[in-house]
Nucleic acid binder design. Structure first.
Lengths: 221, 221
DNA sequence: AGCAGACCGATACCAAGGTATGGATCGGTT
DNA sequence: AACCGATCCATACCTTGGTATCGGTCTGCT
């Protein structure tokens, strides 16, 4: 797969470096119809799927896609502003990377957006390659975040089936206590501790002490 | 200790909420002599020690204090700019919280500073209470960062005395392998593995498997 | 040459971990 | 009433972990 680059003008045609997770989407929120279309075409030209919304309400109504995504967000819009949406997403627990795009920004607003976790803040008119670079970086980040979160979520899901007593025992294990010490603290016998411990290990699918401890650490018990 | 607040004007006189670590310092870098003095007086009035420098070079020459600190930094100065200093500190590994203070900021510069990890970006003229709040927050953060880093550094220091073979064994332990499995992988006997393992445990001051695993995780072996 | 330290091994012993099997109570559900 | 799951206890058995004490080789440094 030989790639010849002849001119700067062709840059937007080059494939995205790492094809990313393959399935991802760029969410565009802007009240300007023409601009939405321009952005959509830009992303399409490099093979990035995108969805466009004319307002924050429209996006929220649609809901967030369950795949790696990032948001290209206009700061000033009729109705809820970009900052509002950012705050809304944060309290919803949706940690989609947000890239602000605006023509009329002042420094305090910029600071507020960045402190709230915005990935970048680009002025309109935007340079296409800069936007594409930022977007692909954002998609990559979101993909990685999702991967690590999935692993965590799986452990948490397994942990839901733990009985109170089992978590008591696990806490002791994580603290490095001996079975007999755990037994003393809980007022039960060492044998029972072993029972709970092996039961907990089975539920968390841990075949080693090391794995068990790491999972308990992750659960924050 | 009853505190009566009668007027907004007295706000700058109220003591800092959490006395912080007791010993901390605010680093002021600004080329304006009067402004440095004004800031210094402001911090003094609330009991915050501060040091002022007329340029980034002056600060670098002096070196960073080894206690919780934060930096109040002018963006535009003759010689190296605030952004330069921020980058310089970053590559030095000094993670002092930086608060930018400037009268002439544009959005791209703000974004750059925030992406580079600035804690805040306040416009001149600055509201005193806002600056004080930001500074005390920064000092608190730096204090917490130092605490956790100290614990980590201690483990890393201890880990330096580990022999290559001992780290090999620890890697196996962290992966949840049995001693005999580690022995097989390393091509040695189980007895030798036990030896290295106990030796490593002694060096890392771990009195339990759980503790050992957590420390190995921290070391990123 | 002498020494320190990393590295490897063995035997022996005891403590701890882990599993299997069997049995018990209690509270809540169907 | 029958059942299930959480909790608890016990005996027995084997594996693993951990330590001590003894021994050895090799490298690098003084």
């Amino acid at each position: 797969m030989l790639e010849v680059r002849v001119a700067q003008a062709n840059d937007r045609m080059r494939p995205v470096e790492a094809p990313l997770p393959g399935d991802c989407v760029v969410l565009i929120v802007d009240d300007d119809d023409d601009f939405r279309e321009t952005l959509g075409d830009l992303f399409t030209s490099v093979g990035l799927p995108s969805m466009a919304f004319p307002s924050t309400a429209a996006l929220l109504k649609n809901g967030l896609p369950d795949k790696p995504s990032c948001m290209v967000l206009d700061l000033r819009m009729p109705g809820a502003s970009g900052l509002d949406l950012q705050a809304r997403l944060a309290e919803m627990g949706a940690r989609v990377p947000v890239i602000f795009l605006t023509g009329y920004a002042d420094v305090p607003t910029t600071v507020r957006a960045m402190k709230a976790g915005a990935l970048d803040f680009l002025p309109k008119p935007v340079r296409e390659q800069e936007l594409l670079d930022t977007v692909t970086d954002a998609l990559r980040r979101d993909h990685e975040r999702r991967c690590s979160e999935d692993a965590d979520a799986e452990v948490r899901r397994l942990a839901q089936s733990l009985t109170p007593r089992e978590t008591d025992v696990l806490r002791g294990v994580s603290r490095g206590l001996l079975n007999k010490q755990i037994a003393f603290e809980l007022g039960i016998t060492e044998i029972t501790v072993k029972m709970h411990r092996s039961s907990a290990g089975r539920k968390l699918r841990s075949n080693s002490v090391a794995d068990l401890i790491k999972k308990v650490e992750l659960l924050g018990l």
